[in-house]
């Protein structure tokens, strides 16, 4: 949970569910046969699958089913599926809750800002690294830029709060340039810049890694051909490099849209405070407070389900759109 999920695009495309098991490589046996045959032959493999499947059932699928408490009254200590059916009571409750809509609005704004700033930066960074001719310097920049990715979000939060504190570096700079200091960590107006800039700092380096991998596979002869056609460096980038990494860009864009609703929950939880809830409170932090601090489990579960459904819808539609327009999709 602390590590951000980055999926190698082709790892997902490689085996779309429903297409596997067809024995494309022409193995020992060509027909899958019945379950009885399969189990007699591969029972050892099935024993290997057993524990992980139990894990997925208990820790992944049971909580999904547990979402029914959004429609049922839940009592702490009672059944995880709630006590009695209450229908849409909790859904109407949050639809009429102004704090929820504020959190919803903040989520959308932070999500859009993240897409706008945090998504393109790694691409630009990768392109610039790619133009470097000194491999040693390139390696140095990469090594350093990946570092924030390996830090605990608690440490990142600590660094943010210190750097933006009244005596921190940002205020030292502000003071010497403009002669004023700002209470960044408590002023609601400054939360978004603080959050987004730290997010760029944290994700730019590691985010570039998949683009760099894609860039190493660009065919050099394409550049040669472009040069013969009189393309300058910029045109080469525009017409050769960018099209070559387009599938990677689209795949990552789809995945980013899929995590749109989950905007840096753990980080926000660590750096926000009641003074800036106005801009910093997002759906996930709001439901955390409602559910776990005020113990309104059913109410919070209703909000959580709403959030997950939007997330799933977003990723499905992004995938469908990109399949139609660009011919690239996750599955």
């Amino acid at each position: 949970m602390a590590m951000r999920l980055e999926i190698p695009p082709e790892a997902v495309t490689a085996d779309p569910p429903g297409k596997g098991g067809k024995n494309r490589n022409g193995g020992r046996r060509n027909k899958p046969g019945s379950w009885k045959v399969a189990i007699t032959r591969d029972w050892r493999l099935y024993t290997l699958v057993l524990l992980p499947l139990i894990y997925f059932a208990v820790f992944r699928y049971l909580p999904m089913a547990g979402n029914v408490i959004a429609f049922r009254q839940f009592q702490p200590g009672g059944s995880i599926f709630g006590e009695k059916w209450v229908g849409l009571k909790y859904v109407t409750l949050f639809i009429n809750d102004p704090s929820f809509w504020q959190a919803f609005q903040n989520t959308i704004i932070l999500g859009v800002l993240t897409l706008l700033f945090c998504f393109p930066m790694p691409i630009i960074f990768a392109l610039m690294l790619n133009e470097l001719r000194s491999q040693k310097f390139k390696k140095l920049v990469q090594t350093v830029a990946y570092l924030p990715h390996f830090m605990s979000v608690v440490i990142i939060a600590g660094m943010i709060l210190q750097n933006f504190s009244m005596t921190g570096t940002v205020n030292q700079v502000a003071n010497s340039l403009f002669g004023t200091t700002v209470n960044f960590t408590q002023d609601a107006g400054w939360f978004r810049p603080m959050y987004i800039s730290s997010e760029v700092w944290q994700t730019m380096g590691w985010g570039a890694i998949l683009y760099l991998a894609a860039l190493t596979r660009v065919d050099e002869s394409l550049y040669e051909a472009a040069r013969i056609d009189g393309a300058n460096r910029w045109q080469q980038t525009w017409h050769v490099t960018l099209p070559a990494i387009r599938p990677t860009i689209i795949t990552l864009l789809i995945l980013n849209i899929g995590t749109f609703m989950a905007v840096g929950f753990e980080k926000i939880l660590l750096i926000y405070n009641p003074l800036n809830y106005e801009t910093s409170d997002v759906i996930s932090t709001y439901l955390y407070r409602v559910g776990l601090e005020s113990s309104n489990f059913s109410y919070a579960a209703a909000i959580g389900m709403f959030e997950s459904v939007i997330g799933l819808t977003l990723i499905l539609s992004a995938n469908a759109i990109s399949k139609r327009l660009a011919g690239t999709s996750l599955w």
């Binding site: 089913a65 995880i80 997330g311």
Partner: peptide, 13 residues
């Protein structure tokens, strides 16, 4: 990867 139970059901579980 794309859908999860969410915070509250996990906590309850």
């Amino acid at each position: 990867m794309f859908f999860n139970g969410g915070l509250i059901p996990n906590y309850v579980l």
